[in-house]
Simulated scan of single mutants.
Amino acid sequence: MGFTTGLLGGFTLTTTLIYTSLLIHNRNRLRQATLLRQQHLLLNNVVEPQPLLPPPTTREVRDAGLWARSKDRWNMELEANVKKVQAVDWEGAVGRVEEGASQLWQRAFKGGREGAERAAGREG
């Protein structure tokens, strides 16, 4: 191992150890501070209990902006469309579509048959 490699390796190792030890120390101190705060609150609540919170007040609705009104209108329209789709009698709708397609098919071939008969009658 050369001088430069040894120097850089030692620097890297030392820096990593210092960083790791400082990180662990910092996290331990934060954990201890959190535990001390919890214990302080518990002990103070035994001696002087915190007053009960007031009942929740009614929610005030402020004038919504353009964006909120647009979203509300979109949601109402979407909800109405979903209700319309849910209220459709799908079996009846499929039956009506099949009946219409059948009538269209019959008219197309009936007209074709009549035209073929007329054409055959003129030739014959």
Rank of each mutant, 00 (worst) to 15 (best):
M1G: 13
F3W: 14
T4P: 01
T4R: 10
T5G: 05
T5I: 08
T5P: 03
L7S: 02
L7T: 07
L8H: 06
G9T: 13
G9R: 14
G9N: 11
G9I: 02
G9P: 03
F11G: 03
T15P: 01
T16G: 09
L17D: 07
I18F: 07
T20Q: 03
S21N: 11
S21I: 14
L22N: 02
N26W: 04
R27V: 01
R27P: 07
R29P: 07
L30Y: 01
L30G: 01
R31L: 09
A33M: 08
T34I: 11
T34H: 04
T34S: 08
L35S: 03
L35V: 04
R37N: 13
Q39F: 00
H40G: 05
H40I: 06
L41V: 09
L42C: 02
L42H: 01
L43G: 01
N45H: 15
P49F: 13
P49W: 14
Q50A: 13
P54R: 05
P54F: 06
P56D: 14
T57W: 04
T57L: 15
E60A: 09
E60W: 00
V61H: 00
V61M: 07
R62M: 11
D63A: 12
D63H: 00
L66A: 04
L66W: 09
L66I: 13
W67S: 10
A68Q: 14
A68V: 12
R69E: 12
R69I: 02
S70L: 12
K71P: 00
D72E: 15
D72H: 10
R73H: 11
R73P: 00
N75R: 09
M76A: 11
L78W: 09
E79Q: 11
A80Y: 12
A80R: 14
V82K: 07
K83H: 06
K84P: 00
K84I: 06
V85S: 05
V85M: 12
Q86F: 09
Q86Y: 09
Q86L: 14
A87V: 02
A87S: 14
A87Q: 13
V88F: 03
V88C: 01
V88I: 14
V88D: 01
W90L: 15
E91M: 12
V94H: 04
V94I: 15
R96V: 01
V97Q: 07
E98H: 05
E98A: 06
E99T: 03
G100Q: 13
G100I: 08
S102T: 08
S102I: 01
S102E: 11
Q103V: 02
Q103D: 01
L104T: 08
W105H: 15
W105N: 15
A108I: 07
K110A: 13
K110H: 08
K110T: 12
G111E: 04
G111A: 03
R113C: 02
E114N: 09
G115A: 06
A116Y: 06
R118W: 05
R118D: 03
R118G: 02
G121K: 12
R122N: 12
E123A: 10
E123H: 10
E123T: 08
G124I: 07
G124S: 04
G124V: 04
